[in-house]
Design a binder for these strands. Structure first.
Length: 586
RNA sequence: GUCCUCGUAGUUCAAUGGAUAGAGCACCGGUUUCCGAAACCGGUAAUCCGGGUUCGAAUCCCGGCGAGGGCACCA
């Protein structure tokens, strides 16, 4: 049974074998299995159609030959009914006993984990996400990278990859001159202690203001920057302080979002590694002088033949292309990454395409193995007016304010629905519901699209929302609270086979977890998993409304309890992969 | 100008080239002596336009129209 974890893969192997026995050229036949329309079956294979087309044969006859062979394969006939429909679709409909066997085998998180861990075993992935600037508060624009990046890390880890979470913070560069100028003259130590990022941000804004009002201040700020870039001990010490306070402030928000990084290797970390980039790219003859800058063109590319990748500015300074190249090298050499994933907004698409092209040529010419590279990009979060959301004052909404508001709103909603909860528990529930709702709103939208942010929608208990999923989980747990311990003994032995449409629909949906996981990780699109979880919760709710669980008939009760347990298991695993905690009650 | 990401019910979102395009909200109707009705069941309603490829197109290609974004030293 273990090899049925991924039912699509299993069916593909068996179908391909059957096709071979039926005299079909296996190389020309696609046995790709996909979820079928429930009216026709559970899994379908369409390969007979294109195959027949190429041979100018009748697709139904081809399908029939394959089905005739499959019908001799007990591994298949023991678990599924076969049929041919329409122009030549081969449909597999699993027997209710198959679902029961599957659910009995895949009954705990560790069994799921063990089965899934084969998918990416041996992969070493560095995921670069979050990446805010230091000395500034994070705002709503940072949330997608954090939330999507974290989900991708969890998914990859679950599938067996060795993941390094790297926060590539913007901790170096021109803003520091103005910040240091203001820091030395206008620091409020109490405010710094209470809210480091808030105070640093205030100082930076103040410094900018003063510098634009007064040329003397501007000049002093420049001197501050020069001293920092020259590595003057006093400047470096102040920089260290600012950096450390910044990371401390960032971590407060990451803690709330349940995100922990392995390292914070920001731009400053690479500042001594850029000279090697210039040197190697020039030696490889990839980089050339243009208008005083050092740039890379890609003559074979329709756009980057003309649009330069600037790796050294005409004033001799590095920019983010340089540090990103140095970062690619470091991740290859130090982390031995087989894959690098960078999660940023879609405006940086060109930059990362150029980075990837340049790295490919650079590594090839220097005999290095290039890690696979993915730029996981995402769209904007808009307000009701279709424009990027802003606070009433027109400034970006601070991330910590967004989180606080989510918790407050969740508190109100949960209290309204369940007034019996003690205040202390209510507060904890509100935190989980509020934060989950924000995260889930993001993860349930296709990342490449913009989406409209709506408090009403994301905190609703209806539709594809965190509260709906969390509610489904709490209802299941509520059933278990009502049972005697003896009700849960030897469930597998007591259970009778599924009968009702709702039972089978729910069982089928649970088994689909694997396919949902697969497509989510293949495409790095968490909304695929979220869509699945919504369907799973819906299948449970439909089952729950129509089939009483705690009934007299012991076989019926046992099989329904199995469904409840495994539905909860799949929900919990799926939500945790998205970075969302479940609740006992709400 | 050029390139990119998009364009799906009134609205907010789905749909790995597969069968009758699927949900939430809104609107209309139904379900509770019974495990949490924060729920469930049913109904009305959509692929921007025009070509093409394909056995099969919301999806791929070409041309329009519309929105947002990138395109020489910000990241």
């Amino acid at each position: 049974m273990q090899d049925w974890f991924d039912v699509a893969e299993k069916i593909e192997t068996r179908t391909l074998a059957a096709a071979g026995k039926a005299g079909i050229d296996q190389a020309a036949f696609s046995a790709e299995a996909r979820p079928a329309d429930p009216r026709f079956g559970d899994v379908q294979v369409n390969g007979a159609l294109p195959y027949a087309k190429r041979l100018k044969a009748n697709p139904r006859e081809i399908a029939q030959k394959i089905v005739d062979e499959l019908a001799k394969d007990e591994a298949v006939t023991d678990v599924a009914e076969l049929s041919i429909a329409g122009p030549g679709f081969i449909n597999f409909r699993f027997k209710p006993s198959f679902y029961l066997d599957w659910l009995n085998d895949f009954s705990t998180e560790s069994v799921y984990r063990e089965a899934a861990a084969k998918l990416y075993a041996g992969e070493r992935v560095v995921v670069d996400y979050g990446s805010p600037n230091t000395a500034k508060q994070m705002h709503v624009g940072h949330i997608r990278s954090i939330v999507i990046g974290e989900a991708i890390c969890r998914l990859l880890e679950f599938c067996g990859a060795d993941v390094t979470r790297d926060n590539h913070i913007g901790d170096w560069g021109t803003p520091y001159g103005k910040l240091f100028y203001a820091y030395k003259r206008h620091l409020d130590p109490d405010a710094l202690k209470a809210d480091p990022l808030g105070e640093l941000e205030r100082l930076y804004k103040l410094g900018s203001q003063l510098a634009s009002d007064d040329k003397a201040v501007l000049e002093e700020s420049r001197q501050e920057l020069v001293q920092l870039q020259d590595g003057k001990p006093e400047s470096m010490k102040l920089w260290e302080t600012v950096n450390q306070l910044s990371i401390q402030g960032l971590k407060e928000v990451y803690d709330q979002l349940d995100v922990t990084y392995d390292c914070y290797l920001g731009e400053s970390f690479y500042r001594d590694r850029v000279d090697l980039v210039y040197k190697e790219l020039e030696e490889c003859q990839l980089a050339e002088e243009s208008n005083g800058a050092l740039v890379v063109f890609h003559p074979e590319h329709k756009r980057y033949a003309e649009q330069p990748f600037i790796i050294r500015k005409s004033d001799g300074a590095s920019n983010y292309a340089t540090t990103d190249l140095a970062t690619m090298l470091y991740r290859h050499e130090h982390f031995k990454a087989t894959r690098i994933i960078i999660v940023t907004d879609d405006r940086q698409k060109d930059h990362f395409e150029q980075l990837d092209l340049t790295t490919a040529k650079w590594f090839e010419k220097t005999g290095r193995t290039r890690p696979a590279f993915d730029h996981v990009m995402f769209g904007k979060i808009n307000g009701d007016d279709g424009k990027p959301i802003k606070s009433r004052s027109g400034d970006p909404i601070r991330l910590k304010d967004l989180i606080s508001e989510a918790i407050e709103r969740a508190h109100t909603v949960v209290k309204e629905k369940n007034s019996d909860l003690p205040e202390e528990e209510l507060q904890l529930i509100a935190e989980t519901v509020g934060i989950s709702s924000i995260k889930y709103a993001d993860l349930s939208s296709n990342r490449t699209s913009d989406y409209v942010f709506s408090w009403e929608k994301l905190l609703s208990f209806e539709g594809n929302t965190a509260p709906y999923l969390l509610y489904a989980a709490t209802r299941i747990q509520s059933i278990f609270r009502k049972l005697d311990p003896s009700d849960l003994e030897n469930l597998e032995a007591r259970a009778s086979v599924f009968e009702t449409g709702e039972e089978i629909a729910l069982a089928r949906k649970i088994v689909e977890f694997v396919g949902a996981l697969q497509i989510t990780i293949d495409t790095l699109r968490p909304h695929m998993l979220s869509g699945y979880l919504y369907e799973l919760a819906g299948a449970f709710s439909g089952f729950y409304a129509a089939n009483k669980v705690i009934v007299e008939d012991d076989g019926q009760k046992a099989r329904r309890l199995i469904l409840c347990q495994r539905a909860l298991l799949a929900l919990k695993i799926g939500l945790s992969l998205l970075g969302i905690k479940t609740l006992e009650r709400m």
